[in-house]
């Protein structure tokens, strides 16, 4: 049992676990800083997936697992990552690490998790196993609970090996050596540049970044004609879910990126970044207002047409494009001087 593990509640599972594990080794990096360094902010209009029921069509972040991997690679922390085919072996290897006093991060499925309120087959939830006492494990699930929780051996084995899309196969990760983190200012500049590049899009591909948001608005205009009245509403509901429920639960990670820019302004000593932070928060509010309007549309409480909603999406796309173009230029000027 690791006694000095500090459980800090967080808004998002993956960044929260990463930040907590780093904190255990004495590196004080906040959750939003990890999110920024890992280039987590994105928009993807997932192509080629037929829309059926509440299939995931939008993503406001990069692929699960990439934030952790990118951030720790940049910081120069040595990590171990392992997947398994044998269930008992997976538990045994984790026990060995826990006996050495190393907290182990786990990627688990959400459906069979005992404390999970959701019944969705989402297989990329992250939590951290902190200790073992007899047949019970102590876990820290920072995005849902403010205290440490207990989970039985069989339950943990079950959630580590779920079926369905993106099987984690008992994926676990841990830090191999005690990391030493020095100056991170150049890393921040680099990650802001890369995020700008990602959001402004790859030429001729209309599914990622700002171009993806524009594509979404175009699809929204023909929604009723294409799917019928009922399914069009389910489509809007899945958009609300993507903005308000998945991950941080608010404005599709825009608030978290705003917080990152605010912290970056203090570390880099560039007060102009604080203005960008405020602007990002404003864009986050626009996303939340869109979700609110969609909610009214679903419940039949307003007479907004799909065209009006699409116009709002275009407005957001324009705001984000302006924001990231300005942010990109801002960094270039500073590099030259």
């Amino acid at each position: 049992m690791i006694t000095n593990f500090e459980h800090r509640p967080s808004a998002h599972c993956e960044t929260g676990v990463t930040s907590n594990i780093l904190n255990f080794y004495g590196c004080k990096l906040s959750e939003s800083m990890i999110f920024g360094l890992g280039e987590g902010l994105s928009f993807i209009y997932i192509p080629f997936i037929p829309f059926k029921g509440n299939a995931l069509k939008f993503s406001f972040r990069t692929v699960p697992g990439s934030v952790f991997a990118r951030a720790l690679k940049k910081l120069g922390v040595k990590i171990g990552v392992k997947r398994f085919t044998n269930k008992e072996e997976a538990m045994k290897e984790m026990d060995n690490l826990l006996a050495q006093g190393i907290p182990v991060g786990n990627v688990v499925g959400m459906y069979h998790l005992p404390h999970s309120p959701y019944r969705t087959h989402f297989n990329a939830h992250t939590l951290c196993v902190v200790g073992k006492e007899g047949d019970e494990y102590t876990i820290s699930d920072p995005s849902w609970h403010t205290t440490l929780l207990k989970i039985s051996y069989s339950d943990l084995m079950r959630v580590r090996f779920p079926a369905g899309a993106f099987k984690p196969n008992g994926k676990m990760f841990w830090i191999k050596e005690k990391p030493v983190i020095g100056d991170i200012s150049h890393l921040i500049e680099q990650s802001i540049q890369k995020t700008c590049k990602k959001m402004l899009g790859i030429p001729f591909v209309s599914y990622f970044g700002v171009a993806g948001i524009v594509t979404m608005s175009k699809r929204m205009r023909k929604l009723e004609k294409r799917y019928g009245e009922k399914d069009a509403r389910v489509y809007l509901a899945s958009l609300i879910q993507a903005i308000e429920e998945i991950g941080t639960g608010g404005a599709g990670y825009r608030f978290m990126y705003g917080l990152f820019l605010h912290e970056a302004a203090e570390i880099l000593n560039k007060p102009k970044l604080k203005d960008f932070s405020i602007e990002m928060t404003r864009i986050g509010d626009l996303w939340r207002l869109l979700a609110l309007e969609c909610g009214r549309k679903i419940k039949n409480r307003s007479e907004v047409s799909y065209n009006d909603l699409a116009d709002k999406v275009v407005e957001i796309a324009a705001a984000e494009k302006k924001f990231f173009l300005a942010l990109k230029k801002e960094k270039l000027e500073k590099n030259n001087s």
Partner: peptide, 8 residues
């Protein structure tokens, strides 16, 4: 701000 649920 965001609400975080604790065990009932």
């Amino acid at each position: 701000m965001r609400l975080i649920i604790k065990e009932s």
